[in-house]
Computed example of a mutant assay.
Amino acid sequence: MKSSLWSIGDLAERFGLATHVLRHWESEGLLDPQRDGAGRRRYGEADAYRVAVIVASKAAGMSLDQIRALVDSGSAGRHGILERHLADIDDQIAALERSRAMARHALECRAHDIATCPNFRANVADIVAGTRVGMGFESRSHVHGAGAVVAGDRLG
């Protein structure tokens, strides 16, 4: 970017944002643009890079509070916040892998209604019985409704 000052409209346009988003980030303490003699916001190159960090962090699923800690050099809790964010990402990945396993199982299972599949039922019988809570599908081969073994099925 060239080293000049941009208006709020110019900077917002560069990042595909509405101007009210930049104003909100300013009210949240994430941005602190210069002001000209008339009180209009003027954003410099450092502000543009900060907006880029905020946009990228939001795209990575971070909250404004998390982003504030990320960009605040005086934030003592920065590492803890980032470690918790990584743990959240790991949880989301695990949930997506379970979702993939469920969809793959339903797609490959000979039982039209997955709830009638003996192997799916075996995986959730303890939940139905109340001896386990939650859905955690392990990876192993199993027999489908009509007796066909499908290797690599993730529902057990």
Rank of each mutant, 00 (worst) to 15 (best):
63 S>T: 15
70 L>Y: 13
79 H>Y: 00
98 R>F: 04
61 G>P: 04
86 L>N: 10
123 N>K: 13
38 A>Q: 15
26 E>M: 07
80 G>I: 06
129 A>G: 06
104 R>W: 04
99 S>D: 00
125 A>Y: 03
122 A>N: 11
20 H>L: 00
130 G>C: 00
122 A>D: 10
82 L>S: 03
43 Y>G: 03
21 V>A: 14
93 I>Y: 07
96 L>Y: 09
20 H>T: 10
104 R>V: 10
29 G>T: 06
32 D>P: 00
56 A>P: 02
78 R>L: 01
42 R>I: 09
22 L>S: 08
117 C>P: 05
84 R>G: 00
71 V>M: 01
77 G>L: 11
68 R>H: 14
103 A>G: 00
22 L>F: 13
66 Q>W: 06
25 W>E: 01
23 R>P: 03
45 E>H: 15
91 D>I: 11
61 G>I: 04
127 I>S: 13
38 A>T: 15
20 H>C: 04
53 V>F: 08
50 R>N: 01
35 R>K: 09
69 A>F: 06
25 W>F: 01
52 A>T: 13
44 G>S: 13
21 V>W: 09
71 V>G: 01
89 I>T: 05
110 R>W: 12
33 P>A: 05
30 L>D: 04
75 S>P: 00
68 R>P: 02
33 P>G: 08
58 K>V: 06
115 A>Q: 07
75 S>C: 15
92 Q>W: 05
118 P>Y: 14
75 S>A: 15
91 D>T: 14
91 D>L: 12
24 H>T: 03
103 A>R: 15
24 H>C: 02
47 D>I: 01
115 A>K: 05
98 R>N: 08
45 E>K: 15
56 A>H: 09
124 V>D: 04
96 L>G: 03
21 V>M: 13
106 A>D: 09
51 V>F: 02
54 I>T: 12
111 A>L: 10
27 S>R: 12
122 A>G: 02
116 T>S: 15
68 R>Y: 14
78 R>S: 04
114 I>S: 08
82 L>D: 02
47 D>P: 03
91 D>N: 12
57 S>Y: 06
115 A>Y: 09
43 Y>K: 06
61 G>N: 03
80 G>Y: 08
91 D>E: 14
113 D>Q: 11
63 S>H: 08
113 D>P: 06
103 A>E: 07
85 H>Q: 11
129 A>K: 08
40 R>V: 12
56 A>F: 07
130 G>L: 02
120 F>N: 01
104 R>N: 09
61 G>D: 03
129 A>I: 01
36 D>Q: 03
131 T>E: 15
106 A>I: 09
115 A>I: 05
21 V>S: 13
116 T>C: 10
32 D>W: 10
111 A>S: 15
105 H>R: 04
95 A>S: 05
20 H>G: 03
36 D>P: 06
109 C>R: 04
39 G>Y: 15
43 Y>C: 02
63 S>Y: 08
87 A>S: 14
95 A>K: 03
124 V>A: 02
99 S>Q: 08
117 C>R: 01
60 A>W: 12
106 A>E: 11
129 A>L: 04
63 S>M: 07
42 R>L: 08
100 R>Q: 07
59 A>R: 14
34 Q>T: 14
33 P>M: 05
97 E>I: 10
86 L>K: 12
